[in-house]
Nucleic acid binder design. Structure first.
Length: 254
DNA sequence: ATGGCAATAGAGTATTGA
């Protein structure tokens, strides 16, 4: 089973990229973030035609998450039931006995801004809900754009980013709190290339200069960690015309 | 060198992202 995550930064713009990528990478499950579409505009027919069933939770202009799957999506839940939130950032479904969660963690804008406070509160509540979910689902994977670079290996210029949003101690502690629940960053189970990232700024020739961050992650419960045989970042679609600023991350579960 | 790109809403320019 291959499971993947990709922040597409507008599914309206990126639908051709998505279909092309799925043709090249026929993963079993793909979690999307930043679809930026209301549910009535979601391209269900095109995705079905590509061989995928899909659940989605969107809103106008911002956020929006989805899960594509070759197998049926059961027990679909929108949002963290413990966190009152108008922003559509969480979608969960059970696929082939695995609880899959697509998550779009808030960006946080700047340390100590209102959005940063919201990000930390959101993560704290996610932690509480995940603890619960893990009790009822031994096989659980939470995939998405975490907007947190776990450590300095995940940052192109750690000195420049030190203490900044996406790299601050409080954000990293919030991510560590999630892994302390018994979730593992699948990427670090394996030897990985140096300076390998999942996001590059559109500005400053970020991708060409590889000025990026690794902020998109696949966290696995212990049961899935034992079955995980690979985790890779696919930079290929970042080189395509009019790309998303994020690259997909893929984990293989045997 | 502290900007720079891109998407959205909506009709010039503001907001957000990371």
């Amino acid at each position: 089973m291959k499971i993947a995550t990709w922040n597409v930064n507008s599914l309206k713009v990126r639908l051709p990229h998505l279909l092309r990528w799925l043709a090249d990478n026929p993963v079993d499950v793909l979690c999307l973030q930043e679809t930026k579409l209301t549910d009535d505009k979601f391209p269900v027919a095109e995705i079905n035609e590509a061989g995928y069933q899909v659940a989605f939770s969107g809103q106008k202009t911002y956020n929006g998450v989805a899960i594509l799957s070759k197998l049926p999506l059961l027990d679909v839940v929108r949002n963290n039931p413990r966190f009152e939130d108008e922003q559509q950032r969480i979608l969960a479904a059970t696929i082939d006995g695995v609880r899959i969660i697509s998550a779009y963690v808030p960006n946080g804008q700047a340390v100590d801004s209102d959005k940063y406070v919201y990000k930390l509160a959101w993560l704290k509540s996610l932690h509480e809900w995940l603890a619960e979910e893990m009790r009822s689902h031994a096989s659980l994977a939470i995939l998405g754009d975490y907007n947190i670079a776990p450590d300095d290996r995940d940052v192109h210029d750690p000195a420049a980013w030190e203490g900044q949003v996406l790299c601050s101690d409080k954000e990293r502690a919030a991510l560590t709190a999630l892994t302390d629940l018994g979730l593992t960053d699948s990427y670090r189970l394996f030897e990985q290339p140096e300076k390998n990232f999942s996001w590059w700024d559109y500005r400053m020739l970020g991708f060409q200069k590889n000025k990026g961050l690794r902020i998109d992650h696949i966290l696995l419960s212990e049961k899935l960690t034992q079955r995980c045989t690979a985790c890779v970042i696919d930079r290929a679609p970042r080189k395509w015309e009019q790309p998303s600023d994020h690259a997909p991350v893929i984990a293989t579960i045997d």
